[in-house]
Design a protein around this nucleic acid. Structure first.
Length: 153
DNA sequence: GCCAACGTTGGC
DNA sequence: GCCAACGTTGGC
């Protein structure tokens, strides 16, 4: 069992949207490193759902990876913002995951909170200039995050 | 294979 | 809306 952290803008798709839809194809990731982290995950792994460009930004909940290596259909959709004309149809470049809602955290873990508790070594998103939309989270760090998120306020 | 220009991300 | 940081592109 391992953990990821995936970012999304709540204005576009937030934890409440995921709760409503239950399962979502994580499309639109157009960064090789982020893609590789997704492909390295396994069905049953968990992912922290991070709200970027939010007020304040932070971790809002948890979801579970229910499928790995799904072809992202938006790469072939000319009308999509994520259309990639250079991706070969017979060997799609952008493979992604499907995630399922698990929980919305009792305590929203704001970026400020995260900085107080964790170091940039613990969490990639705390590193200077880090923009990766999918990052791995160390198991021990993940456990601490879950404790913080579920502890009564 | 270098690197300048450009586009994007995302916190503030 | 600004801008630092970073990835990608394309000329050479």
């Amino acid at each position: 069992m391992s953990y990821l952290l995936i970012k999304s803008e709540p204005d576009t798709f937030g934890i409440d949207d995921l709760r409503k839809k239950k399962v979502e194809l994580w499309d639109g990731v157009r960064n090789f490193q982020a893609r590789n982290y997704m492909l390295a995950s396994k069905v049953g792994d968990l992912a922290f759902f991070y709200h970027s460009n939010a007020k304040p930004p932070g971790i809002a909940g948890l979801c579970k990876i229910v499928e790995v290596g799904v072809v992202d259909p938006t790469q072939f959709d000319k009308k999509s913002h994520y259309y990639d004309p250079t991706s070969p149809k017979d060997n799609p470049r952008w493979l992604t995951i499907k995630v399922e809602f698990v929980e919305k955290f009792e305590n929203y873990l704001s970026l400020d909170d995260l900085r107080k508790t964790f170091s940039p070594d613990d969490l990639i998103i705390l590193r200077r200039g880090s923009r990766l939309s999918v990052t791995p989270v160390d198991n021990k760090v993940a456990k601490r995050l879950l404790t913080l998120a579920r502890k009564a306020a």
